[in-house]
C-alpha cells in the first residue's frame, strides 16, 4: 500500500512539474510573440512614414535623386522580407539609408523651414528609437525563452509539446557589411 502511495505521489509531483513547466514555456513564448508584435507595429509605422517623407522632400532634393531611390528600394526590400532574420538585415539597411538621407537633408536649410518635413523627420527618428528599444526587449525575451528550451528538465517538456526556437532580431553583422549589390538591384 505504501509503495502505491509513493508512486501516486511521485506521478502527481511529476504531473504538477510538467504543467508548471509547460505553462512557463507558453508564457515565455507569448511574451516573445507580444514583443515581436510591438516591433512589427513600429516597423509598419516606419514603412508608412517613408513615402510621405520622400514625396515631401523630393521638390527640394532635385540633385539627390539617387539617395531617394536608395531609400525607396531599401523600403521595398524590407517590405518583401518574410523571415525574421531577413527582416533584421533589410530593416538595418533601411535604417542606414534613412540616416544617409537625414545627413543629406542637413545641407538644405530650406527644408528646416518646412514644418511638414520637420514633423515627418521627427516621427521617423522617434520610430527609429522605438524600434531600437523594442528590439532590445524582444531579444532579451528571446534569450529567456531559448534558455528555457535548452536547460535540462524544461527541454524534455519542450520537445514533447513541440516548442520550437525563435530567431533573434539582430543584424549586427549585416549593419557593418554592406549588402551585396545584386540584392539592391531589385
Amino acid at each position: 500500500m505504501m509503495t502505491v502511495w509513493i508512486v501516486i505521489a511521485f506521478v502527481s509531483v511529476l504531473c504538477f512539474w510538467g504543467i508548471f513547466s509547460y505553462n512557463r514555456l507558453v508564457t515565455a513564448r507569448n511574451d516573445v510573440q507580444n514583443a515581436w508584435s510591438q516591433i512589427d507595429i513600429q516597423l509598419k509605422r516606419r514603412h508608412d512614414l517613408i513615402p510621405n517623407l520622400v514625396s515631401s522632400v523630393r521638390g527640394y532634393l532635385d540633385h539627390e535623386r539617387q539617395i531617394l531611390g536608395q531609400v525607396i528600394s531599401a523600403r521595398s526590400l524590407a517590405l518583401a522580407a518574410q523571415r525574421i532574420s531577413d527582416k533584421a538585415v533589410t530593416e538595418a539597411r533601411l535604417s542606414l539609408e534613412i540616416k544617409g538621407l537625414f545627413a543629406v537633408m542637413e545641407a538644405y536649410p530650406a527644408l528646416k523651414a518646412n514644418q511638414n518635413v520637420l514633423r515627418l523627420q521627427d516621427e521617423l527618428v522617434s520610430t527609429e528609437n522605438r524600434i531600437t528599444f523594442s528590439r532590445q526587449l524582444y531579444n532579451d525575451l528571446v534569450a529567456n525563452y531559448m534558455t528555457l528550451l535548452q536547460v535540462f528538465p524544461d527541454a524534455v517538456i519542450a520537445s514533447l509539446f513541440g516548442f520550437t526556437g525563435v530567431e533573434y532580431f539582430s543584424a549586427s553583422t549585416a549593419e557593418r557589411r554592406p549588402l551585396p549589390a545584386a540584392a539592391m538591384q531589385q
Binding site: R119, D122, E123, V125, S126, N129, R130, F133
Partner: peptide, 9 residues
C-alpha cells in the same frame, strides 16, 4: 510633437 514622441519612447 517632438516632446510627445520622446515621451512615447
Amino acid at each position: 510633437q517632438r516632446l510627445l514622441n520622446v515621451t512615447q519612447e
